[in-house]
Amino acid sequence: MSREEQFTRAILDARLPVPEGLLDGVARPAGRRFSVYRNNVAVSLTEALHQGFPVIAKLLGQQNMDGLAAMYLRAHPPSSPLMMHYGAGFPEFLENLEQLSHLGYLGDVARLELALRCSYHAGDATPLDPARLSAMAPQDLMRCRLHFAPAMGLMRSDWPIFSIWRYNTEPNAPKPQAGAEDLLITRPDFDPIPQLLPKGSAVWIAALQAGETLGDATDAATNEFPDFDLSAPLALLIEGLALTDLSQ
């Protein structure tokens, strides 16, 4: 077994003995000196999960979050030196834990936190001039396709994830009520902003993301939600600087 193999196994599993041939300054076995590495790895990855999932940490409490982080980091060490991406598997990990099965919303709340982090680091884009939309006749506009900024995100959940997120991040936010919620993430400046979407809007945006025309996307949304009105989500996209282009 190579030195690295010995090190990484013993770092991730504190029950394993300290590898042979590691010494102190007078050639005695290194003993607990090796724990410095075990501790550095565990503490830094636990800290990264706390920073990446602050709402999950708040919902679970510090101690539970530390315990889950300890399990997660051993099962899923980072697969890249870019710590900004660490925790991509955390939502699924939370969903598969028997002891958390009564908190069904945790996975989607964690997905929302991942999506916000992803938006924060996404590429910059020049926003579409809204005058280009207003200059078009409605029937011409319906034949157009919209293009989105990399920092824009869309989420659909069976749980009230936006309300849960807001309740845990904003003072005086209303208590979450049961029910599905869709949300839009935009990054008009540098901070991603999640917003609740009216019914049908997520169907409409998803169809546009798939490359459908405004007309076809609007038909798809109206089929599912007869009261759908495109003006509300379109305004959110424009205000959030989430549109970059318009094409035929």
Binding site: E4, F7, I11, Y37, V41, S44, P77, S79
Partner: peptide, 17 residues
């Protein structure tokens, strides 16, 4: 130092002989 082994990144500066 090293920090990656077998596609996993350990987020620490680990020593080498």
């Amino acid at each position: 130092a090293w920090s990656t082994h077998d596609t996993h990144f350990y987020n620490d500066l680990l020593p080498l002989p």
